[in-house]
């Protein structure tokens, strides 16, 4: 087993293991902290695939931005509403059966199928230039649409979060 393999299994275990904690933890705070390791694990996998830009973006955007906001959100709302935020489970048995069958099928298929793999990674020194070029040529249209999508999402979030006139009067 080469070093790369060892690193791969380490990051994969980190990702899957912490993702399991996210799913099964009853406290949202613990789940959010476990999510940190999931994101880091994925970033590690990106590094192994020589996707340097993607790895850095993953850490900066998800770990540095989204996760911190999420943690603040959870902690602040707990303070304000004085309610413990926990998650619960309903319909445990049927869900386990259905998910188990799905998981089994997928594992079977994924392990047996012939995948379209590249034997070796292309010899590139940095992906940033390449990504920038592709985003403005081949993937120009999706790039622009993603921009509009984010704009809509921001507007929507602002609209939902804004206090209505009624709540202002109450406060």
């Amino acid at each position: 087993m080469s070093y790369t393999d060892a690193f791969f299994y380490f990051f994969a275990a980190l990702t899957v293991g912490s993702a399991l904690v996210v799913t099964f933890s009853r406290s949202v705070i613990y789940a959010a902290f476990a999510l940190l390791f999931t994101f880091l694990g994925v970033a590690g996998l990106y590094v192994l695939l020589q996707a340097d830009f993607l790895a850095v973006a993953q850490i900066m955007v998800y770990v540095g931005g989204i996760l911190i906001l999420l943690l603040f959100g959870v902690m602040l709302t707990t303070r304000v509403t004085n309610a413990e935020i926990t998650t619960g489970t309903v319909q445990g048995l049927p869900a386990t059966v259905v998910v188990g069958i799905l998981l089994g099928t997928l594992i079977l298929l994924v392990s047996r199928a012939t995948w379209n793999v590249q034997e070796s990674l292309p010899d590139v020194t940095g992906t940033t230039t390449e990504i920038g070029e592709r985003l403005l040529t081949t993937f120009l249209l999706p790039f622009e649409i993603a921009g509009i999508l984010l704009l809509v999402a921001i507007m929507g979030a602002a609209m939902i979060a804004r206090s209505t006139d009624k709540t202002k009067e109450a406060a």
């Binding site: 249209l141 999706p142 649409i145 993603a146 509009i148 999508l149 809509v152 999402a153 507007m155 929507g156 609209m159 939902i160």
Partner: peptide, 15 residues
Amino acid sequence: MIYLSIELVSITSYI
């Protein structure tokens, strides 16, 4: 493109 356009429609519809 299929994914992005479906997502654009979905997010706007949620709002």
